[in-house]
Design a protein around this nucleic acid. Structure first.
Lengths: 324, 324
DNA sequence: ATCTCGCGCTAATGCGTATTAGTTGGGGAC
DNA sequence: GTCCCCAACTAATACGCATTAGCGCGAGAT
């Protein structure tokens, strides 16, 4: 099985120098090097005939772009739930990459080889500070999908804070005065943003707000008329538990889900739940755009995209629990 | 904000040569080069101090492989049904690629740049003969996921023929004597294999077999007691249509599905359908193994993996239609 | 005193590409 | 005939690393 074809091979075949092949390939009219049309054609023919494609590695070493964008995640992509979670991002990334003429390099095990690509997109709900620092330290262009707390990290995120605040406002407008946030509230930025959006909006509206872990005993939520659930996958379970506890959703208590359940979650919620939708495809899209700009020397940006609200049927007029 | 640290930098800092740094780094006891313990220590200290990490690009250039495997599909990966179809293959490919230390290059638009990778994996239900010929003509290692009719194409496929034949045998054992295959029967190899497995098994068993398009009027199937459905996504619709036509499944007619419905199909079948399961993950796995062998100079192979039968509840004892 | 040997290291080379300075040959101007 | 210029290339170099032939040197052998 022969070696792969190199520019030298093409050069020998056509009786020119390797440099000429390189020039023809990159078609640099401005470089001050001129090639006779017929020579150029001979070279192009040979390239066609051999199926030659510039070697990625050589090209990168000589420090040119190879139109490859890297992608890696800080969490496994497969196991069950996350697969469906990541997929829309990847779809967006792939679509946009095709449009800008780039191929995607999926790093199967972390970022050590990130320099093989012109730039990288990193995914992951939560990335440690030290890890982010290492990425920045690489001095290689990258864009995070999802907001990161560290300064100077370019990202395209979803505005979970604003979306959560809007839902709080809707709840307040429907008469709710005692609200609870159920979930970790951290350490991932996406959870921090939700909790902060919740807390700020409640404060601004002057309503009572509490924060509980997801395993909170339902007794502690008896005063609450609207529950804001951080983890969409828990929706079905929460609603069932509430019912089992004698509280019907949305009759006795409203439930707002801060995100969208992925289909992989074995049990889809029985109701069309009030929630919002993370614009995952769009985020992937914009991340690619951003990265391409970055590779092209433009300055880093930090972008938040709005989440679309889904009215659903689990946020209703508040009733005092005495009414039941 | 300086350049990256290189071996030359380390070398200058410690007063040795770049080659020495390389040797210390790779710690090759067998290379015939010996380094005094204290020198080695000085170098290691400098490496520690600077946080040096070998540049992947330089490293790959020196050993002439880039540990990149390409992947491309001949059909779009996203739109609806196919997404869920391809995903398990990709999962298998990615898992195995990580284990063998390769990254994956996702070609966003066809194979023209396939030489960027050490070798490629190609996916697609159906690939034209000419296209296959071009791939072979590239003289660049590749493995197809799915059997291909063209000679000399290395592949890892699923043994649809055997699986279909087994199901025919089960039907015959349950007294079915008039069987129909509903579907295109081509031109994709996977469909050809199913149809051939069906036809051969029916012939061997001496039972009556017909082949109908998927839009066949149900009247034409009135004599048939067992329907073999090529396209799993159509299962729900077929069962509903049969019922609407006065024939209950499996009471009046058995339905065997030649594959597994993907979740994306809006309407999952109402019954646990008798079918088989394509070992998609496993196929991805083995395709990577095969490709790595190929890149390593080993000969091409053609492999078929068995499909797992799922008993289900839609293949029942045959009743003459007069019984109803 | 010379030879040998092995240790510890370096110089040199190659990998495939992009870039730039420089070279060659031929034709036109004077 | 000489000078100059320009089109059309090529030679050389750099990129970061791995590999290998070989060099210098001191110690032990003869």
């Amino acid at each position: 099985m022969g070696r792969r074809v190199t520019q030298r091979d093409i050069a020998r075949m056509t009786g020119v120098s390797q440099a000429t092949v390189s020039v023809v390939l990159n078609d640099r009219a401005d470089s001050g090097v001129r090639i006779a049309p017929e020579t150029r054609q001979r070279v192009l023919d040979a390239i066609r005939a051999t199926g030659y494609v510039a070697d990625v590695v050589g090209r990168r070493l000589a420090d040119r772009s190879n139109r490859i964008l890297g992608v890696f995640t800080y969490e496994p992509v497969f196991p069950s739930t996350t697969a469906d979670f990541y997929h829309p991002f990847l779809v967006g990334i792939e679509q946009r990459a095709e449009q800008v003429g780039c191929d995607l390099l999926l790093f199967t095990s972390g970022p050590h080889r990130m320099r093989l690509a012109d730039g990288c997109i990193v995914l992951g709900r939560s990335i440690g500070k030290d890890e982010l620092a290492r990425l920045v330290g690489e001095h290689h262009p990258f864009v995070s999908v999802g907001r990161r707390d560290a300064a100077d990290v370019p990202y395209v995120g979803a505005d979970y804070g604003a979306a959560t605040a809007e839902l709080v406002a809707k709840a307040v407008a429907r008469g709710h005065r005692r609200l609870a946030y159920v979930g970790t509230g951290g350490p991932a930025e996406s959870h921090l943003d939700r909790l902060r959006g919740f807390a700020d909006a409640c404060l601004a509206a002057g309503v009572h707000a509490t924060h509980e872990r997801r395993d909170v005993p339902l007794e502690k939520l008896e005063d609450v008329t609207a529950i804001f659930l951080e983890e969409p996958a828990d929706a079905a379970e929460l609603i069932a538990a509430l019912r089992h506890h004698g509280r019907e959703v949305p009759r006795d208590v409203s439930v707002v889900v801060l995100g969208e359940p992925t289909r992989a979650g074995a049990t889809p919620p029985p109701l069309d739940v009030t929630r919002f939708r993370t614009p995952r495809r769009e985020m992937g899209w914009q991340a690619v755009d951003h990265l391409v700009d970055l590779v092209g020397g433009q300055p880093a940006r930090q972008t938040l995209l709005a989440c679309e609200l889904v009215a659903g049927e689990t946020l209703e007029q508040a009733r005092s629990r005495r009414d039941t």
